[in-house]
Design a protein around this nucleic acid. Structure first.
Length: 536
RNA sequence: GCCCUCGUAGCUCAGUGGAUAGAGCAUCGGUCUCCUAAACCGUGUGCGCAGGUUCGAUUCCUGCCGGGGGCACCA
């Protein structure tokens, strides 16, 4: 894929040589200046290399400019030194026409794809909700975030395994089973049981002959899987904790930890020396009553995950972050390298409805389900709303705003751009306007600022995808989609395409620009897992 | 007390080791005989506070203040 920066970099490198600078930095940074009046691209090499060159940055920048001006890199119109020592490049629009060609050539499958993860595998665990009830609005955030992160990783060449851990044994399951059974008898669950209305509903569905525990687990799993499917999220692997224990994986992990001298007994319990590996204290693996804690099978599970990924990622809610040091310690005790395990901690989600916060509590029963949100606003809006913000921020979803068919709702802005593109296609078909082959179309007529802004946005998508992947930040793709939509709406407003007074050449070029925008938007929405409507 | 995280415009949030920090909403005012006005155009005294590193810090480091979360032989 052609990148205009390669030419700029080559030019800067030889200009540095020409200026007699030996210690040129290996990586020459070329960025888009915030202020458009500074040109299309800018480099800080003069600032970075000033020390090695032994002269003031501004002076070095001017020398670089003098050399570059003799034989400018491709597309470059002017080079100038500016500010404290930046080298600014002004480019002819041809560089953007080249971008459009590349977008069209690569298409939705190929554009903004990276090979930086090629040959690497990664296991990503997310959601992993207990099989004791439906997914609440908090789970929805991890579903949307985790799946879109996986899509980003895949677009960058990683082989991804989406994992869901089913914690289907232990005390919570006992309580859930007992609650279900109580409801089926028409009784109230115990105080520490599950009181959600869904428990009663499920109990009413349950056949008399059903084995309550198994039936309940399956019912919860089915409910969760349906919600996830509605959100366009699917997992490659569900791992059942009880099966993991049954097939001996837990015992093997315990044995391995023991053989490494990491385990000891105290007060009748079996402890792991996590304190020696950065945790604040040692942790219990097997309780004094002989029952393993949640921790031990989870260690076995994580141990296994390294066979599926060079990199193992856990996506956790902030309420579980305290768990990270002990897992990290346990994996260290098993000999796994520290940088092979990555935890992404997301802040909580709250919902607001009618101006008041809705509390999320599974046992109290007063909660907002992802399924409810999907019913109210649809799966695409639900998913996009989750991906509007960084997971570092506590998110408050105002259901009234998100469900409103109004301009306050940020989702429609992007959807409308998509709908307009398809609307154009329908109108073109109605008027029997065909798009000529790209090779026969002269893109150089695209010189309107509105046109160029759309192309600039398209040009930035590959960088956005790589940056969002590295930062584990799918919301950056959402921001890009909003930017592209903004550029597209402005273009649409100012640049007619099918109107009779539009020149044929220009119309053809604009049709291809619209196609480029469609490709870019499709790539972004694909990463976000959102399907935009073809009409609103 | 210790750990994690956040603090940017009236509100909800982006953003970056660089040059004059952005968007949406809200406010006020414009734009449909014109490919859908769910759109476009105009309207802004803001990086919690104090140090440090740096040629350059809103960004990195330390401390403080404030919000949220976590510190089990629960999961």
């Amino acid at each position: 894929m052609p990148d205009v920066r390669d030419g700029l970099r080559d030019g800067l490198r030889s200009a540095l040589e020409g200026a007699g600078v030996d210690g040129a930095p290996a990586e020459i940074a070329i960025e888009r200046p915030r202020d458009r009046s500074h040109g299309e691209w800018s480099s800080n090499v003069a600032l970075a290399a000033a020390k090695a060159a032994g002269r003031p940055p501004r002076e070095l920048a001017e020398q670089i400019v003098a050399h570059l001006s003799v034989q400018p890199p491709p597309h470059v119109v002017t080079v100038e030194a500016a500010g404290p020592g930046f080298v600014n490049f002004r480019l002819a629009p041809s560089w953007l026409h080249e971008v459009l060609g590349a977008v069209i050539d690569a298409g939705v499958d190929g554009y903004a794809r990276s090979t930086e993860g090629a040959g690497r595998s990664v296991s990503v665990e997310f959601v992993s909700a207990n099989p004791t009830g439906p997914l609440h609005a908090g789970h929805g955030r991890w579903a949307a975030y985790g799946d879109s992160l996986c899509r980003l990783l895949e677009r960058c060449g990683y082989a991804v395994c989406r994992e869901f851990y089913v914690n289907d044994r232990g005390r919570q399951i006992d309580l859930f089973t007992a609650s279900l059974e109580a409801r089926s008898r028409g009784a109230e669950p115990a105080d520490d049981g599950y009181h959600g209305t869904y428990v009663a509903e499920w109990a009413a569905e349950m056949p008399d002959a059903a084995e309550v525990r198994r039936w309940g687990l399956e019912r919860a799993h089915r409910d969760q899987a349906e919600t996830l499917a509605a959100m366009n999220v699917s997992f490659d692997l569900y791992t059942s904790e009880s099966e993991l224990v049954a097939r001996g994986a837990m015992g093997e992990a315990l044995h391995e930890l023991g053989s490494r001298g990491m385990v000891y007994e105290n007060d009748g319990a079996v402890w792991l020396r996590t304190g020696d590996f950065g945790d604040s204290a040692d942790r219990v693996l097997v309780k004094s009553d002989g029952e393993p804690t949640y921790f031990l099978p989870d260690i076995a599970y994580h141990h296994e995950k390294f066979s599926r990924g060079d990199l193992v990622i856990d996506i956790l809610g902030a309420d579980h972050h305290g768990y990270v040091p002990r897992m990290r310690a346990a994996l260290g005790a098993l000999g796994h390298p520290p940088d092979g395990y990555e935890t992404l901690i997301g802040q909580n989600v709250t919902l607001r409805r009618g101006g008041a916060e809705v509390r999320l509590s599974k046992r109290a029963g007063d909660m907002v389900l992802v399924a409810d949100l999907i019913d109210e606003v649809g799966p695409d809006v639900t998913r996009l709303v989750y991906l509007l913000q960084s997971i570092d921020t506590t998110q408050t979803i105002d259901v009234d705003v998100v469900s409103a068919q109004s301009a306050e709702n940020p989702v429609y802005y992007v959807q409308y751009a998509h709908a307009r593109i398809h609307s154009l296609g329908r109108m073109a078909a109605a008027r029997d306007v065909q798009r000529a082959p790209l090779d026969d179309v002269d893109l150089s007529v695209l010189v309107h600022e509105r046109e160029l802004d759309v192309l600039r946005a398209l040009a930035s998508l590959p960088d956005t995808v790589v940056a969002a992947t590295r930062a584990r930040a799918p919301h950056q793709v959402t921001n890009w989609a909003r930017e592209l939509a903004a550029a597209f709406h402005r273009f649409w407003h100012d640049c007619p395409i099918l109107r009779d007074d539009v020149d044929q050449e220009l119309r053809q070029a604009r049709l291809w620009l619209v196609e480029g925008a469609r490709v870019g938007l499709a790539v972004a929405l694909g990463i976000l897992g959102v399907s935009a409507p073809e009409r609103l």
